[in-house]
Design a protein around this nucleic acid. Structure first.
Lengths: 351, 351
DNA sequence: CTGTTAGCGCCTTCAC
DNA sequence: GTGAAGGCGCTAACAG
């Protein structure tokens, strides 16, 4: 509280002078190794007190320089705007902290230029490992890390420059498609009315999900209609437009819809909010991803949720046994949204 | 790409040796001050090439140590789980980057112990400024920063240990309450049926919003019913329960509701999703905060949105003219949700 | 048990 | 134009 040295940060020299001991003694006391050096308890106490009085705070820059360890763990992701990325960030932080590392997460807006510059900055801060999430092309970033000798792990989108851990998009899509088909059948509707909307053609996650969607139909020997899959992009507006077109053509909403992302589902909500309740209440709808609001709309939506916890712990496991030549891809199963919800709702202070 | 020095990070010494020049020349070239020292263009080019070839990357630890500038800008916030905090994080990052600083944002789960330890860590990394958002009691954190001579700014929740920038909760609440009252009157309902649900008694934002709610009624000379305000907490479950109790007592939903936070509104959605459409479609409802799903439900919700952009730029302005004795509180007006939406919807790759 | 010393990688005078 | 030297704050031998 009472900082004698106003403004100027105090160093171990200041506290050595103040206590009449030497810098090495101070250093030992301050980083806890003093018992091993049989330093008098009283000296230690005096040093600790003085440190507090001076508002001392280790300079990790100097320590890192000396030890060549920064204590920083980095993660880049596109943004925090949906629960998946927000969850990744949060879980990463918790895990990093529990390992005694300081988490540094940076959003890059999916801009390759920003991505590269952020990675360089993080590298120059000497992060000890770097998770790269949701980046379209991780290869150049992995190369940067490799050149600096820093382990990098690709998360959510795999790359061939480093080991990766991703959700089992294909398996998940297959599972949710199965559920939707069953629901359709239960309602006496034809399964081939089910369509998959959203995502970007050629993009990894999209292709995997399309494959899973197909798998479900193949397994039942049902032929897919040619226009059953429409990868209209990841933003809400284009999903809404795509839906509007189909609505016009059909004269009503498709009876089964699987939205490829939470934003595509947002587009669905936008569109249907203008329709009468009757127009949509009978539709069977699913969404590959989860959101608390979406989960509680007044009609039934089957939502798939990615297992953020496992994704992050697998990524750390990969980092622990890091091998520059490792290119393994760990697949993490998805689960249906309902399973997670209880834990979610009772959290305090969630504002 | 071809890093000759496998694993080991290269230093300016490596590149000095490789190019046959001296470390100071290398240093000057690498940080752009070489034109001022009349260094041969060819030398410069040779050095730059060599740097690239060796995968060189400045060691900010060393540079920071020498220059006593880390190039880091820190921000702590509770979590990224809602659009307000996600937006704060994002805007902070953009702004920090545009100032040539590397943004470091850390979530602290509203745990005072974590908050303190994160701030200490950030301080020990020598961040050049620190924004403290959504922290119940910022004072001890401000004290830590002050002792280290690092400017800290409180965001969202003010404190008396540093300057603050917060949303105009009171003015916003007054404005949205006015709108809801008008809607109620337009529907021939009595304005005193309007209730305010959510928040925590004694907490700054809650109290401000309650005050604004009262202001609106006072201005019209309408008396508030004793149970018009219920601060039942910030989580969805308790809002849902509070609502359920009122529903039981009244035999129907209150005809006007202002939810104090997005999570409280989530509770509202949970509860009403079990009711028939008729039960809620006539209710006048508002929410202090914004969410894309909430914004497009099939009934009309008036939503207030905090101006994240202005909050952050005001905070940076405060940091620029930082004065340790400054305790000013900057109030940032809120706006109604509709105004922001167009920009939001056309964003690409929003997955 | 405690003090002295030599760098960690970089930048900035100051000579040459 | 370029090289040598000192030091930022800290730690880990190595001497006392």
């Amino acid at each position: 509280m009472a900082s004698t040295t106003q403004g100027r940060k105090s160093t171990i020299y200041d506290i050595a002078k103040a206590t009449g001991s030497s810098t090495s003694t101070v250093s030992m006391v301050l980083n806890g190794t003093w018992t091993r050096y049989r330093i008098k308890e009283e000296t230690a106490r005096r040093i600790l007190d003085s440190a507090r009085a001076l508002g001392y705070n280790v300079n990790m820059k100097a320590r890192g320089l000396r030890l060549s360890r920064s204590g920083l763990a980095g993660m880049v992701l596109p943004h925090y705007r949906n629960r998946f990325f927000a969850g990744l960030a949060q879980t990463f932080e918790d895990e990093a902290r529990s390992r005694g590392l300081c988490p540094v997460v940076v959003g890059t807006q999916r801009d390759p230029a920003v991505e590269a510059s952020v990675v360089e900055t993080l590298l120059s801060q000497r992060v000890e490992l770097l998770f790269i999430a949701g980046v379209r092309n991780p290869a150049p970033l992995n190369a940067l890390c490799a050149a600096a000798g820093v382990p990098s792990i690709n998360v959510d989108l795999p790359g061939d420059g480093a080991p990766s851990v991703v959700s089992d998009n294909r398996g998940g899509a297959r599972a949710i498609t199965d559920v939707l088909i069953d629901k359709l059948i239960a309602r006496g509707e034809s399964p081939d009315a089910l369509i998959l909307l959203g995502g970007i053609p050629g993009e990894y996650a999209t292709e995997m999900r399309i494959a899973g969607f197909r798998d479900a139909f193949d397994a039942r020997g049902i032929a897919l209609k040619p226009d059953a899959v429409e990868s209209c992009g990841y933003n809400a507006a284009s999903a809404r437009n795509a839906l509007a077109l189909r609505h016009d053509k059909l004269g009503r909403l498709p009876s089964g819809l699987l939205m490829n992302s939470i934003t595509a589902f947002e587009g669905f909500v936008h569109f249907t909010s203008k329709l009468s309740r009757e127009a949509w209440q009978s539709a069977v709808v699913g969404c590959f991803d989860w959101d608390p609001f979406a989960a509680h709309l007044s009609f039934d939506v089957t939502m798939l949720r990615q297992d953020v916890q496992t994704i992050i712990s697998e990524a750390f496991a990969l980092a622990d046994r890091y091998d520059p030549a490792d290119r393994s891809v760990v697949l993490v199963p998805t689960a249906f949204g309902k399973m997670f919800e209880e834990a979610e709702q009772t959290r305090e202070f969630d504002r």
